[in-house]
């Protein structure tokens, strides 16, 4: 029962992301791989155990947890950099407006 549900969910998510066209082809490929890996680790859960043993981690669930934390940090870093960039753009816009409309002591009607 779990397999068709997973496939349906995966298909819907991919269709949604693909329709947004905000990702490059490479990024889209990574998203597909990411979800495929997730689906596989659910269906064949002994695989994550073997992978955990390979990395010297106790359990498959632990490996997934570490991986999830890593993903979380990367997402946070990505948002942080975008935030800095937005700040830079905002500064530039506000500065240009300020310089384009200086108030000079003579023009009393402007303020």
């Amino acid at each position: 029962m779990i397999v068709p549900v997973l496939l349906l969910g995966l298909g819907l998510i991919l269709a949604y992301i693909g329709s947004r066209k905000s990702l490059s082809r490479l990024q889209f490929l990574f998203v597909i791989l990411f979800f495929l890996a997730g689906a596989i680790s659910v269906v064949f859960n002994d695989l994550t155990m073997k992978a955990a043993a390979l990395f010297g981690v106790g359990r498959g669930a632990d490996l997934l947890l570490y991986f999830a934390v890593l993903c979380g940090v990367l997402v946070a870093a990505n948002f942080y950099f975008r935030f800095r960039e937005n700040e830079r753009v905002l500064t530039e816009i506000v500065r240009r407006i300020a310089i384009q409309s200086p108030l000079r002591p003579g023009d009393h009607d402007r303020h």
């Binding site: 905002l90 506000v94 500065r95 300020a98 200086p102 108030l103 000079r104 303020h111």
Partner: peptide, 15 residues
Amino acid sequence: ALAGGAVVLRHAVNL
């Protein structure tokens, strides 16, 4: 500042 005789540039938001 304008009353004091300065040219004033205004940032629309605090930067």
